[in-house]
Every structure is written in C-alpha cells, then in structure tokens.
Amino acid sequence: MSWTCLLAFAGHSALDPAGPQAARIGDLWWLMFWVCSAVFLLVMAALAAGLVREEEPARRRMNRVVTGAVIATALILFVFLFASTGTGRALASLSSADPVSVEVTGHQWWWEVQYLDPVLAQRVTTANEIHIPVGRPIRIRTVSHDVIHSFWVPNLHGKHDLIPGYDGELWLQADRPGVYRGQCAEFCGHQHAHMAFLVVAESPARFAGWLAAQRQSASPPATPLAQRGHDLFVQLQCALCHTVQGTDANGRIGPDLTHLASRRTLAAGTLPNTPGHLAGWIVDSQTLKPSNPMPATSLGSNDLEALLAFLDGLK
C-alpha cells in the first residue's frame, strides 16, 4: 500500500519534538499528563474507598476532605495556567534578525510555499514541501484566500490557523535533520484529510544547494519524447492552471510544477511521487481525491507517456 510507503519516510508526532517550541509544548503536555493521571488515580482510589466503607464518616471529616479537594483543584489549575502561559510566551519568543522567510498559502486542498527574497527573481515557489535549514529560525507568513486552514507540524510547533484576509506569522525551528509530516488541522472541505505536506529539515549546506537548484528554470526537455510532452503541456489544459518556469505555462491556479520531479509526494501528501501514481493522477484525479479542482484529462497512451517523460525531467 502507498500509505505504508508514505509513513516510512515521514513521522508525525507531537511527543517526538524536533525543535525548541515543540519541546516546550511536549513538556507542558507531559506535565498535564502526569498531574491529571495522578488526580485520576486519587479520585478512583477515593471512590473505591467510599464504596468499600460501611459506616458513614463524621460530618467534620467529610467537610475537611471536600474543602481540601477544592483547594487542591484550584491550586493545580493555577499551576496549569502559569505553565501554559509560560509555554505560550516561550513559543512567541523565537525570533532572529536573519530568518528564512517563507510564505505559506493554504488552498483547497494543497499548500503553496514561497521563499521570500528581496530580489524578485530569486523567489522560489513550490508546493506541499517546505525545506528548512537545521538550527536557524524560520519565519512563516501564513495566508489563505478561500477558507480557514490550519498549519500544523506536530514535531515542530503547535497549530496555527490561516484566516482569509488576515495574514498571520509563525516562527519555528528544527534542531535535528529529518522529514516531518504536517497536516491541515482545521476542517476546510471535502478533501481536508488529503491536505498534508512535508517539512524537510536538512543541514544549512544542503538547504542552500536545494534552494539554488529550485531557483533555476526548468531544464529544457532532453529527449524528443519529452519535447512532445512539453508541447502537449503548454498547448493543452495543463498550462491554464500550472506554471513551469522557463516555458509558456504560467497558470497560477494549481501548484507550480517547475521542479515537480524533486518532490516526494503528489497531491498534497496523497500519493508518493512515482511515474505510475502521476499517470493515474493526470488521467483520473477525481477517483483519487474526489472534488479536487483538477479535471480529468483525455489523453491517449502515447500522449500520456510523452507528458510523463516531460514531467519526469522537471528535477
């Protein structure tokens, strides 16, 4: 199954923090877990004692126990209040004069990722995959134009809502390399569950290499077959929605496909990126992800093969 294949390279757990903020959230979670577990056990023990006991205890003793329990409850809640306020402050304290600036736009149902740069030509647009350098703060600007989405990478940070018309900001940092799965955490329509993404944390040198490669336009088709695929891509419906830098295709509706072959997944984490899955997706995406905006395509097998050859060359 494709799912096992996906899970093999991307974990997804808030209890396995990979960054300073997720660590703070994890600490708070464990504090609440142990305290609540202790309270639960005490309550159950008191209940069992009450069931076993035959004679009614003295009125004064009962009053004392209830008063003590109320005071303990209030104290515990105050501890939680201060702990969660402290965690919130710690989460908001991450900042840097030289962060990696990324703009993430939530769409129904995929993520557009743009690496901001003062020089317009240096900007990189990709989809459903965010590469970040380890140990450096990342500033993520969150945008939505359709409905409310929520950006959530459990291993790195808490949930952050993307509200239409109200750009937000989120800082995160990864301390160890890895591939972390993210997921839309606010119900946003029919395919909300198929709106995942990957955060790939890698060493600063590898990140710089990746960014430089992404800045390049698509390499020209290498074979006659790929050339025919390119011609089909720009002449048919593909180009109305998708951009491939360096060609006539510059639609802005669907994901930028300039470096499609370098990504790990298709359709926002729905499928692993293999030629077979890509072919299935192009021919009949509505079976794989019903109601997504990509229409079915009527391509002969020769044309499909050419198109796949072209897309496979978009490294």
Binding site: S101, L116, D117, R141, P164, G165, Y166, G168, E169
Partner: peptide
Amino acid sequence: QATSPAAPRGQKAEHPQ
C-alpha cells in the same frame, strides 16, 4: 474580513520582501 486588521501582537508591521 477583507479590510486590513490591526497587526497581531508580536508581528512587525513591515514584511521585508
């Protein structure tokens, strides 16, 4: 919802682009 809101706390008004 389309009018610009006040900047959220902690957010700098300018985004260097």
